[in-house]
Each structure stands twice: as structure tokens, then as C-alpha cells.
């Protein structure tokens, strides 16, 4: 159980991380935005928990590898406590006091191990900006008790020297990639290759979790959809056979006037004929 000093340090770390992560977003956020989408990710092996937010039981028996949410949380600071299932909040195994939730953001609160294997909670601000048509966003987060790693796609390192608790991301062509994780600068596989389906218009967040020492390394995934863009245009003809030329307004007006004059003239003619 963490002492109060550890709690405070954790809280400080969480707040700093949240503020740092939110900083880049601040300019893009509308001023009136007040609530954030908050997901909770469980990346601590073999430790189901109850999750308390501001002292209120929010998730019961939340299992390792699961993702909860998103919850709509108003901008502000939150106390988060994790207990063993059914245990009271004062026996929390992990607590963060005053975790900052900025307004208008999309956040993942991740319970995970730090590099040394100690449980902690790290908030990440998710990049939910639109992706280009045909693209998908891949975000990889190192939240495992493991040294620096490289992430490879199809055998080629795409994210290098990623350390706990940091992320790397890229917008890629949508489709399936075969990805694995190796110790940084080596070909020593830490997490073996798996196929990851990067669906167009989504952000797929992959968390490396567990502990290298305990041989519990694995991945947890979170997908955020609705980030698609429309194509730039639909060019679908260059023949000109369906041309519908625009008409000059003045010619049109002149045409209408001539027609009306003709009509008036004919009406008078016709009238004269019928009256004779």
C-alpha cells in the first residue's frame, strides 16, 4: 500500500502528465468545451480491481486487459482509487488525488506498471483529430515493466526507442499490419508479431502491458472511431458529353422580352381576326 508521500508523488506525476499532454491540445479546443471523454484501461496483470472516482464506485471487478468507457467527465480534478474487488476505499491499492481532467479532451487513464514494475496510473490525451481519407491512426504506448523498445511493422522498425510511459503515433494507410515489439536497437522479440487491423477513420491505441521479468508482457487495445474524412473530391468525367452550358442572364432576359413581345403582338392579331 502506498504511503501518503507516494500517493502525493503519484498524483503530482499524473497531474503533470495530464497538463503536459493537454497543453498541445489547448489551442485546438473550443473555449466553451467543458466535458471530456474519459476511458479507463487496465494494464496491470492478474489484479482485478474496483475503480472509485471521487469516492464513488464507478467500475466493479474491472479486469486486467479490459477497457472501460468512455465516460463524460466535466473538466476538473478527480480522485481515483483502485481497490481489490469488494474492499473498502481506505484499503486502496493505488490512488491518485487530484488527477486533472482538462475540458473537451479525449483521455485514457491507464493503470499499469512503471518500468520498475510498480503500479501507477498515467493519463494520456488521445489524438482524436480527423485522419485523412483512406488512413488510420496507430498509437503505441509503452506501459509495461520493460526497458526501451522498438515497434516493428512487417519487420521494419516504425517507432524507435519508446520508453515507459510514453507514446508514439503515425497515420498509416488503413488495412492490416503485422506488428511486433523488440528491445530497442535489437531483434530480441519482447512481444511476438500479431496482425493489427487498422480500420479506416479510426485511432487504434495499442498498450504494451505487463512485466518482462514476470513474463507477462502483452497488449491491450483501444479503438476510437469516427475520425474519418471524406475524399477530396469525386472526379468522374472528362468527356464533356454531358455538358450543360450556363446561360448568360442578359441573353435570357432579352429572350424572355422578345417572347413576350411576340405573344402580345400575336394576341392582338388573333383578337382582330376573331372580332372581324
Amino acid at each position: 500500500m502506498p504511503t501518503s508521500i507516494v500517493r502525493r508523488l503519484l498524483a503530482l506525476g499524473a497531474v503533470t502528465a495530464a497538463v503536459t499532454a493537454a497543453g498541445g491540445l489547448a489551442t485546438a479546443m473550443p473555449a466553451h468545451a467543458a466535458t471530456s471523454k474519459v476511458s479507463v484501461v487496465h494494464g496491470i496483470p492478474a489484479t482485478p480491481v474496483d475503480v472509485y472516482v471521487n469516492g464513488k464506485a464507478t467500475l466493479k471487478n474491472f479486469k486486467p486487459g479490459d477497457v472501460a468507457g468512455p465516460l463524460d467527465l466535466a473538466e476538473g480534478s478527480y480522485d481515483i482509487d483502485l481497490t481489490k474487488p469488494g474492499e473498502p476505499i481506505d484499503k486502496a491499492i493505488l490512488s491518485v488525488d487530484g488527477a486533472a481532467v482538462p475540458g473537451g479532451a479525449n483521455i485514457s487513464l491507464v493503470a499499469h506498471l512503471d518500468e520498475a514494475g510498480k503500479p501507477k496510473i498515467t493519463p494520456f490525451v488521445n489524438d482524436v483529430s480527423k485522419v485523412g481519407a483512406g488512413k488510420a491512426r496507430l498509437i503505441v504506448r509503452h506501459t509495461a515493466a520493460a526497458p526501451a523498445v522498438d515497434v516493428r511493422a512487417g519487420g521494419t522498425p516504425v517507432f524507435k526507442n519508446l520508453t515507459n510511459p510514453n507514446e508514439a503515433k503515425a497515420d498509416l494507410a488503413a488495412g492490416t499490419v503485422s506488428a511486433d515489439v523488440v528491445l530497442a536497437g535489437t531483434t530480441t522479440v519482447a512481444i511476438p508479431a500479431t496482425d493489427v487491423d487498422l480500420k479506416e477513420g479510426t485511432a487504434t491505441i495499442v498498450y504494451a502491458t505487463g512485466s518482462a521479468q514476470d513474463k507477462t508482457l502483452g497488449v491491450v487495445a483501444q479503438v476510437i472511431s469516427g475520425l474519418h474524412s471524406a475524399p477530396g473530391g469525386v472526379p468522374s468525367g472528362d468527356g464533356g458529353l454531358a455538358d450543360e452550358p450556363g446561360v448568360n442572364v442578359w441573353w435570357l432576359a432579352a429572350g424572355v422580352a422578345v417572347l413576350l413581345l411576340l405573344t402580345a403582338g400575336s394576341v392582338r392579331l388573333a383578337t382582330r381576326r376573331t372580332t372581324r
Binding site: D197, L198, K199
Partner: peptide
């Protein structure tokens, strides 16, 4: 309408092609 009680929980499995 937002359900105040139930928070949706999904397994964090890697996404499969739908």
C-alpha cells in the same frame, strides 16, 4: 440517454477486420 449507472466495459483485444 446516458445511463448513469453502467459504464461500458470491453475486452481490450486487438481489433479484427469487421
Amino acid at each position: 440517454t446516458a445511463q448513469a449507472t453502467a459504464v461500458p466495459v470491453q475486452p481490450g483485444a486487438l481489433p479484427q477486420a469487421g
